[in-house]
Computed example of a mutant assay.
Amino acid sequence: MSSWFPPSKPLPVKDGLKARSKRGAIAQKWWSERFIEVLQTIVVGGRLQRGRTYARNGQVIEMELGAGTVTASVQGSRVRPYRVRIGLTPFDDADWGQVAGALVDNAWYTAKLLAGEMPDDIEDVFTAVGLSLFPAGSSDLSMDCTCPDPDGPCKHIAAVFYLLAESFDDDPFTILAWRGRNRDELLGTLSDLRSGGASVAGDDSTDGAASLADCLGSFFSYQAAVPHRTATSTPPDAVLHQAPAVDVSVRGTRLADLLRPAYHAIARTGETP
């Protein structure tokens, strides 16, 4: 039997973390929408709506993401804020080695990631090596909250989920960092693999290669079909991804994250009506 708690009004929070969305869907990108779909399968009833309200009203005081764990402090109706933890098993080095090898085999993936974009079919890369980028359901997650609600994921956990989805909108590398590889680590690995592959190919090209005289007839012809690719769209805040890290934060929020909305706003002012 479900426990019942009388309606209570959460204590107001000054400068809490607020969801940008005021109505409708919170997630904007496809990878964030996938995460919200998981939330909707594990949080039911009024908790989902109340969690969304908590996220939009700024009841989440702070939130921190690391490899395999998200921790947050959420203000409810009691004086002491509740502590929320959402765990997801990170991939180990061997797993990430397989993922990096699969990514580097296709330069299109690397180009997208370097541009700050999540390739639409990146899930297929993880699936091909036997991994799942996104949690499939509650069995893939561990969730804890210090609130007295004993009946599964509560509204405080739901609020953190919604803010996580928005953080994925801002930076698609956040979901990868939760799985155990941050932006610099992943792109560094891809760069090393590409450099190593290029050197091997260079060595092979001098061993038993045909002479120039023997291949003049086909030298300037295509050696393979040229794949059709759409142009890569660079996000407005790409410069923040390339700039050196600055160890400055305001009320627990990194300086880059505070500047990100301004770059998006500037980009919108230049759009053609």
Rank of each mutant, 00 (worst) to 15 (best):
M1W: 15
S3Y: 15
P7E: 03
S8I: 11
L11N: 13
L11W: 04
G16A: 07
G24F: 08
A27W: 01
W31N: 09
T41F: 02
G46N: 12
L48R: 04
Q49N: 12
R50G: 10
R52P: 11
R52Q: 09
R52A: 12
T53L: 11
Q59D: 12
V60I: 10
M63L: 11
V70W: 00
V70H: 02
S73A: 06
R78V: 14
P81M: 01
Y82V: 06
Y82G: 12
L88Q: 07
D95F: 01
A102S: 05
D105V: 11
W108K: 08
Y109M: 07
V125C: 04
S142E: 12
M143T: 08
T146L: 07
D151R: 04
P153D: 11
K155W: 02
H156K: 07
A159S: 05
V160Y: 05
D171Y: 03
D171K: 03
F173K: 05
I175V: 06
I175Y: 00
W178E: 09
W178L: 06
R179Y: 00
N182F: 01
D184A: 12
D192M: 08
S199E: 15
S205I: 05
Y222F: 14
A224P: 09
R229C: 08
T230S: 14
Q242R: 11
A245R: 13
A245N: 11
A245M: 09
A262Y: 13
I266V: 14
E271S: 08
